[in-house]
């Protein structure tokens, strides 16, 4: 099992002023796994994502990806290692077309040296053409409807379509690990069902390992191999879905919080 570990977090900490948002979290994500992180609001889930992807710098602990430290790397360097993500509040480039959005996702695949780009040298042109073909391929993963809209501005798409474009953009860098932050937030049951379907297909067709933040039990219990539960920045439980559903501490964290609100 251990040589199977793709992402390893050891005692990772993040403090904002007086608030310890992430208080020593440890977990391993194995190659090819769908690993979910759940927990009440404010438990620190998105902060963990921001730490892994380099948006925040950790205040302690270590993060290893394929055995090498990714602590303190900038987001684009984390991406080059093979990790990318989507955001809870979809962050597309609204005034760019769908195709351009997915092309930005492949930025790391296109030669960036100025002479090639400025003079449109053959190697740049080839890369650009390949990137465009690849973008259409990635969009067609979600069916033909998105391909048909590739020249529309991202802002004009429906909510569910925007989610998909964001995933297509993330896939452009050919990641090994994909972090999805609440990919079904704001979706109805039918759309959630589709999302579950394509998350599973992401693993089978792209060979991805997926780290997932999700609130809907329908999703986490249905597709996760393992689940970690966070509360107040700590991991309070970890296990396969059936174990988590029976775990006393988890029930307390959820119900206790609920009772306190009432």
């Amino acid at each position: 099992m251990p040589e199977n570990v793709l992402l390893r977090l050891r005692d990772v900490k993040k403090v904002f002023g007086g608030l310890t948002a992430v208080d020593g979290i440890t977990f391993d994500v194995n190659q090819g796994e769908i690993y979910s992180v759940i927990g009440p609001n404010g438990a620190g889930k998105t902060t963990v994502f921001n730490l892994i992807t380099g948006i925040y710098k950790p205040d302690g602990g270590e993060m290893l990806f394929e055995g090498q430290s990714i602590s303190g790397l900038s987001p684009d360097r984390v991406l080059r290692r093979g990790i990318t993500r989507t955001f809870q509040n979809i962050r597309l480039f609204n005034n760019m077309t769908v195709l351009e959005n997915v092309l930005v996702g492949q930025h790391s695949k296109i030669p960036g040296n100025l002479p090639s780009v400025l003079l449109h040298l053959p190697n740049y042109q080839r890369a650009e053409r390949r990137a465009e073909e690849r973008a259409v391929e990635l969009l067609s993963f979600f069916g033909p409807s998105l391909v048909a809209r590739k020249d529309d501005y991202a802002a004009n798409l429906s909510y569910a379509e925007r989610r998909r474009v964001e995933i297509a953009r993330a896939l452009g860098s050919e990641p090994k690990l994909l972090l999805l932050d609440e990919p079904t937030a704001g979706m109805n049951d039918a759309e959630t069902g589709e999302a579950i379907n394509y998350i599973q297909r992401l693993r089978s067709e792209f060979g991805l390992t997926i780290l997932l933040i999700e609130h809907k039990l329908q999703v986490t219990m249905g597709i996760s191999d393992r689940i970690a539960v966070l509360d107040y920045g700590r991991k309070i439980a970890e296990g396969v879905p059936a174990e988590i559903q029976r775990n006393e501490q988890v029930i307390e964290a959820y119900l206790g919080r609920k009772a306190a609100v009432e």
């Binding site: 900038s74 684009d76 991406l79 990318t84 860098s173």
Partner: peptide
């Protein structure tokens, strides 16, 4: 932030 996560080296 989104550009950076998509692989654009900001600096």
């Amino acid at each position: 932030t989104a550009a950076s996560v998509a692989g654009v080296n900001l600096v």
